[in-house]
Design a protein around this nucleic acid. Structure first.
Lengths: 204, 204
DNA sequence: GTTCGCAAACCGACCAGACGGTACGGAGGA
DNA sequence: TCCTCCGTACCGTCTGGTCGGTTTGCGAAC
């Protein structure tokens, strides 16, 4: 244990305070007090308060991206159908988001508090994630498994709205388990997504 | 025009700045400058910065609640089926949310910045709204029109996630019109909601 | 095994400035 | 004369961040 990692303690405290009290209303003094370190120690490891915030984003974005890549790759290797791969992706991202609920709270609430360049990076990485997700949708549409009469941009928004909204209503203390929520929300999404047999016409 | 209502000018400027820059990072000085008034004038009409924020919530909550009541009442008077009433409600709340997109941005982003008692009131009024929405779901479930194997709490979250997420992705400058979005998101929701014929069993 | 050297880790008092809010007075209509 | 409306100058507080200095860890020298 020795010097009990200052960085971890600070990040843990920052996440806790940012998610409960908000970024702007949490002072650096409160963070270091909660972490049991001094301001000097904190500023030895982090350049700014913004760094703490970005670290939360970075961690979640990296994690989710890695898991997405992994699931898509595994599905490709096994030769799984596109709906099975998409289902696995959806269930995983919802489960993971529940596992990291405080991060989710900060994520949706504080993006505009990041320095502009960091904000741009977050945006870029989210877009990359969405594009990989969209590729799955397009594959399914091309194969006739998914409907083609709703723009993929709307389908993406429709699904990720559920993901982002989790931190606003879900509580692990409530009656629903994480996997129940993941399965059922995924099923609701997939049912809306499946092809109806009615192909879109050219007009409106 | 006379003294060009100070209150309106201030609220307009506050909404604009809060939605683009965020509540915490917008100073009262910036608001009054944008509104073309002085701090003295502003504090003559508003007790605090928090008042400005709450006014945005109050307006949107009142509006949405009034429209919900109206649509439900009109549907009842006409003897419309529950799915038709629900569809009208969904389309309306999405359309209205698009019409008030900046308010939506502030709504989701700044709720935790309100004074605790105001926060509690917003929560209470949202709960009332959700309960009226839930009553429609329960009526449909009871009639066998809607599925009964997903908790209403999850169905509510599933729908309102779309509503709240609008301000994060939708742009009036984009290719999709407000009514397209309203119709299609509503249809995606309703398709997931309709009874499958498979009734839920007692076990998990 | 003890001493030395030195860099990294850490401390906490201290800014400069910005913030929300207030005090007070004047203008002007009733 | 009074009251509402509003302008201006100002206040106390708190903030993110800094900086000079001290302590600690540890390999090397002897």
């Amino acid at each position: 244990m020795r010097t009990m990692n200052v960085q971890d303690q600070v990040l843990r405290a920052a996440l806790d305070l940012f998610s409960t009290r908000g970024y702007a209303t949490t002072s650096v003094q409160e963070i270091v007090a909660a972490a049991g370190v001094t301001k000097g120690a904190m500023y030895h490891y982090f350049a700014s308060k913004d760094d703490l915030l970005f670290a939360i984003y970075d961690r979640l974005l990296s994690l989710q991206k890695a898991r997405l890549d992994e699931i898509v790759a595994a599905g490709a290797e096994r030769g799984d159908g596109v709906e099975d791969v998409l289902r696995a992706v959806c269930v995983d991202v919802i489960s993971t988001s529940i596992e990291f609920l405080p991060e989710g709270t900060v994520f949706t609430r504080s993006q505009h508090m990041l320095m502009p360049d960091r904000q741009a990076e977050v945006k870029r990485r989210r877009r990359e994630y969405h594009e990989e997700f969209e590729a799955l949708l397009l594959r399914g549409i091309q194969k006739g498994a998914f409907r083609d009469d709703v723009p993929t941009a709307m389908l993406i928004a429709h699904f990720f709205s559920d993901v982002h909204y989790l931190s606003q209503w879900y509580s692990p203390a409530g009656p629903l388990t994480a996997s129940q929520v993941a399965e059922q929300l995924t099923e609701l999404f997939l049912r809306g997504l499946r092809a109806t047999g009615i192909r879109a016409t050219g007009k409106g």
